[in-house]
């Protein structure tokens, strides 16, 4: 399977009438993305810069053929918005919202489990971009990206930009970049993205950016060792973070001695992944991985 985004991707923005929804929805359209609809309950029948707004996602899908959602719904209602999009048959849901209660996400994930065709990316993430198709579903600055061959997956938004900036400067460019988000319970994980990159003809090399907390990086390392032939470089944020303190992301916490950067780096290195010691060296480390 190739990238989740293509020139056929038609986007409905949930929360298009809000400040961020409008700004990033329009920025996506400016980049070349087909932004076909907005949804805000109670504002159906209006429009934002020519984009029709509907009361429900079901209506937006029926009238515009939207097949992807970019979600900016405020935290208390965001999980409900995810379930609404899934129920309306939207195959790709990108949830940008930060601060969704964990129990709401557990409920939404159970709802999605019954709909195997639906992919959720996030929440609390920068989104997904594919420069070659000029499709951007997210809040990343478009101008730092270039069409190219590096697939990037990250738990952190601004660190993704750092990796993008470095690969652009090195002339490698990006195939697809996915921010999976910093929450403890999320939709798409590292392995989902690595599986996509493995089969994506546009992706020739991969950058995976992790951070302290949880064990997703360790699981990804195991998967890479068993399944992936493409070169992989990595960076783990939070090597100097003190245990027991939540470093911004709800998921970034070292608890009970678990989830430390040291463990993650060791697991990745054991899997043959080159791990950059400094965030400034992500691009260079990838170059080394490509040279083998």
């Amino acid at each position: 399977m190739a990238s989740w985004l293509s020139t056929d991707t038609k986007v409905v923005v949930q929360g298009l009438t809000g400040r961020e929804g409008k700004y990033h929805g329009l920025a996506g359209r400016d980049y070349g993305t087909q932004v076909v609809a907005g949804v805000t309950p109670g504002k159906g029948g209006t429009a934002v810069e020519g984009i029709p707004v509907f009361d429900t996602v079901h209506e937006a899908v029926a009238k515009t053929g939207a097949n992807a959602s970019l979600l900016f719904v405020p935290p208390p209602a965001a999980a409900d918005g995810i379930m609404e999009a899934a129920d309306a048959g939207v195959a790709l849901i990108i949830a940008i919202t930060e601060g969704i209660p964990v129990n709401d996400m557990i409920r939404a994930k159970a709802f999605l489990a019954e709909r195997p065709g639906v992919r959720l990316v996030g929440p609390n993430c920068p989104g997904v971009i594919r420069p070659s198709a000029k499709v951007k579903l997210g809040i990343m600055p478009a101008r730092i990206h270039r069409p190219g061959k590096v697939g990037i997956v990250s738990r952190s938004g601004t660190l993704t930009y750092e990796a993008v900036g470095q690969t652009t400067a090195l002339g490698l460019g990006q195939s697809t970049c996915v921010g999976i988000g910093g929450d403890p319970v999320n939709g798409t994980n590292f392995i989902d993205c690595l599986t996509m990159f493995k089969d994506d003809p546009e992706t020739e090399a991969i950058i995976m950016i992790g951070e302290i907390g949880g064990s997703a990086e360790e699981e990804a390392a195991e998967w890479i060792a068993a399944n992936l032939k493409k070169p992989v470089a990595s960076f783990i944020a939070g090597r100097t973070a003190p245990p027991g303190r939540r470093m911004g992301h709800a998921g970034a916490i070292i608890s009970g001695g678990k989830g430390t950067a040291t463990e993650k780096v060791a697991a990745l290195r054991a899997a043959g992944v080159l791990v950059a010691d400094s965030p400034a060296l992500i691009g260079e480390t990838l170059m080394q991985a490509i040279k083998g």
């Binding site: 952190s156 601004t158 910093g182 302290i212 960076f235 090597r239 100097t240 970034a252 965030p279």
Partner: peptide, 12 residues
């Protein structure tokens, strides 16, 4: 700006 970048800044 950003938790991941903030952690990395501490690291660097």
């Amino acid at each position: 700006n950003g938790a991941g970048l903030a952690m990395s800044t501490m690291d660097i």
